[in-house]
């Protein structure tokens, strides 16, 4: 190891944060860019399934809550792009990578938000799973990422609570409403478990990320936490658990659960989800529709600068005269 590497590893081992201007191995930088930008893209693409419900929310209170929530997700995308940019990559480059498919976003957002119940299930389960992961990432080794996570976690807890409250209202409502809640739970429970990624033994990036403390807990450990905390929440709603194998294991102190359908996981990642194409196409379309606006801003800015220069030139001419 070079002295620089030794110094870097010493910081990692003693829980000192790595900061933007510090020396870091190229692979660490790349790994971070991959992970944080993927996280940012997920927040931004994640505004689509729920955003699609803003105009149809069935009460004004819910409409305001959903609007604020979706807007928060966009804000979280911003915090994360901002953290990634400290690693020497521009937001444009990241967005180009998203649009050409070389950067990924969380596959959960390829599932359609079909019913109003799905808005509840997404807040409760999808954000709930994200929070389990993000709480752990507050201790990640890269300073700007850790700080973005702290900020995001603070805001995110409202997201999960509003989702659960929405489900609660459905479950206390008419049988039709309760059926809607059950249906949404059934469709989103398994995909939410998949959000933690493949089993540790199968995960391509896990070992290295753990060694560098980019990731602090393994996929399976985080997933277990989520499974455990969700059992009681489902019970309280009076809904049926989608996993028929769920069973408390006294010896482990955790719930045992059924196996995830990994074929579905890989199928959706590889383009076979209901919305894969629409999500990216929407992103590209909006980006293209906005290009004339961005060009106009730049043109106006140039004109303003030129005017300022002209004004200053006139002034100094007058002074000479």
């Amino acid at each position: 190891m070079t002295p620089e590497e030794q110094n870097f590893m010493r910081k990692i081992e003693t829980e000192e944060k790595i900061e933007p201007k510090d020396w870091m191995p190229e692979a660490y930088r790349k790994n971070l860019i991959r992970q944080i930008s993927q996280h940012a893209h997920s927040e931004v693409i994640g505004t689509q399934p729920e955003g699609n419900w803003i105009t149809r929310a069935p009460s004004l209170r819910r409409k305001a809550v959903l609007l604020a929530k979706v807007q928060d997700e966009a804000g979280h995308g911003l915090y994360l792009y901002s953290a990634t940019e400290t690693l020497g990559i521009s937001r444009d480059e990241m967005i180009a990578a998203l649009q050409d498919g070389s950067a990924k976003y969380a596959s959960i957002f390829n599932y359609p938000a079909q019913t109003w119940g799905d808005v509840g299930a997404i807040g409760w389960l999808v954000d709930g799973a994200a929070i389990v992961n993000q709480v752990s990432l507050q201790r990640t080794s890269y300073g700007p990422y850790a700080r973005a996570m702290i900020r995001i976690c603070k805001e995110e807890s409202f997201h999960q609570r509003q989702g659960y409250e929405l489900m609660l209202e459905l479950c206390r409502g008419t049988p039709e409403q309760k059926a809607m809640a059950q249906d949404s739970l059934n469709r989103f429970y398994w995909p939410a478990l998949m959000m933690f990624g493949p089993h540790d033994s199968e995960s391509a990036h896990s070992a290295r990320s753990m060694q560098w403390k980019i990731k602090r807990e393994s996929n399976d450990d985080l997933r277990q936490k989520f499974i455990d905390q969700t059992v009681k929440q489902i019970e309280f709603l009076g809904l049926e658990h989608p996993d028929k194998a769920i069973c408390w294991n006294e010896a482990r102190g955790h719930y045992d659960s059924g196996e995830i359908d990994w074929d579905e996981f890989y199928a959706v990642i590889n383009g076979n989800g209901h919305c894969n194409r629409q999500r990216l196409q929407h992103h590209i379309k909006v980006h293209e529709e906005g290009s004339w606006v961005r060009e106009a801003l730049a043109a106006y800015n140039e004109k303003q600068k030129a005017r300022k220069q002209q004004a200053e030139a006139n002034k100094s001419n007058q002074n000479v005269a």
């Binding site: 931004v44 911003l78 915090y79 901002s82 953290a83 940019e85 937001r91 444009d92 967005i95 180009a96 973005a148 900020r151 992103h283 909006v286 980006h287 906005g290 961005r294 060009e295 801003l297 730049a298």
Partner: peptide
Amino acid sequence: MTTENLELFEVFIRSKRGLDHKHVGS
């Protein structure tokens, strides 16, 4: 939603009177 042309700015916020401005992001 790209930002080509747009410049990067750092943001500092004073959370309440009497405290320093603190960097929050960009």
